[in-house]
Design a protein around this nucleic acid. Structure first.
Lengths: 162, 162
DNA sequence: CTCCTTCTGTTCGCGCGCTAATTATTAGCG
DNA sequence: CGCTAATAATTAGCGCGCGAACAGAAGGAG
């Protein structure tokens, strides 16, 4: 019988690391009056706004029911505008306001400060990002990406689909 | 100016991967009537019970205010007992019940099924665990572990402490 | 013994993150 | 045109995860 110790589980390591990162982000984001999720949403909209809620959900990998209250709070802070597509009253149009663009300048050093706090080398960052993206992709599609399947055979016998 | 695209941020990759993992765990844990956090707590107590809340908090890397309602729900399901140290009414003693031990058998395949779903090779698992443990340790102690500091110089100039 | 400090656990308040159900609007089809 | 199906967003309900404030028991100095 294998160990099955909690500390040996990669998922638990990930889970604990993310909790630690969220704690570490708080002091950086408190001066901006943002939570980490709100920061993720703003960062996504800074890249490209004028999108609807579903598009935002796909780009953040979050669900619409999670995002609805988040964007409402961000609208309440005056950082974005929740409009509707003219001609289709169902679809939202999320637009960053002038205040939201100003906040972008205040937040411009956050990613680099965060990277330094987690203390990874550039090579380790790339490794970690690749592994996490692979996990997310595998779980989202239900199978491994074809290129990784050849190079790195998975561990056990409980394949999700044969 | 560097990219600062959301998809380039290792922290965002971690955050999204953990959300995906939590979603993936749900169908595995629903038959056991456990959430992922409850599963983590039970797994930790299966390793060693008879501990107090602070010890459980250290081993799960969670806070007492998070764990109090979790262990109360687990007690409500009859999986563990919340007693007090005789002679020190402050300290809890968390003990797995007979039903809790039975659940351990039902849950014995969960870790392996989970590992297969995330689709990592054993080597990738080790890499990921090492990176996550390093992040958590760095953020918890405020500096990098001495061995890693020599081998992998960190990226930028915003060192938390000089 | 009494005050005061320390330690353990709990409560409070807020913001996610998700599933399921609901509402409102549009598209499609006869 | 009118009915139905679809689509987009929201609401409802639950369980974290955490900082801050609190309650109560134990320990220690005078």
């Amino acid at each position: 019988m294998k160990t099955h110790r909690m500390s040996d589980q990669p998922c638990f390591a990930l889970y604990s690391a993310v909790n630690a990162i969220t704690r570490a982000y708080r002091p950086l984001l408190d001066p901006l009056d943002l939570t980490y999720t709100q920061y993720v949403v703003m960062m996504t909209l800074w890249e490209q706004d004028g999108v609807d809620l579903r598009t935002l959900a796909e780009r953040t990998h979050l669900d619409p029911p999670t995002l609805t209250p988040v964007v409402k709070r961000l609208e309440g802070k005056g950082l974005l505008h929740r409009g509707r597509v003219p001609g289709d009253e169902r679809r939202l149009v999320l637009t960053v306001t002038e205040a939201g663009r100003r906040l972008r300048q205040e937040a411009r050093d956050v990613p680099e400060m965060m990277l330094c706090q987690v203390g990874l080398s550039p090579a380790e960052e790339r490794q970690l990002r690749a592994l996490c993206d692979q996990i997310r992709h595998t779980l989202a599609t239900g199978r491994r990406p074809p290129d990784a399947a050849a190079a790195n055979p998975p561990a056990g016998k409980h394949q999700g689909r044969p």
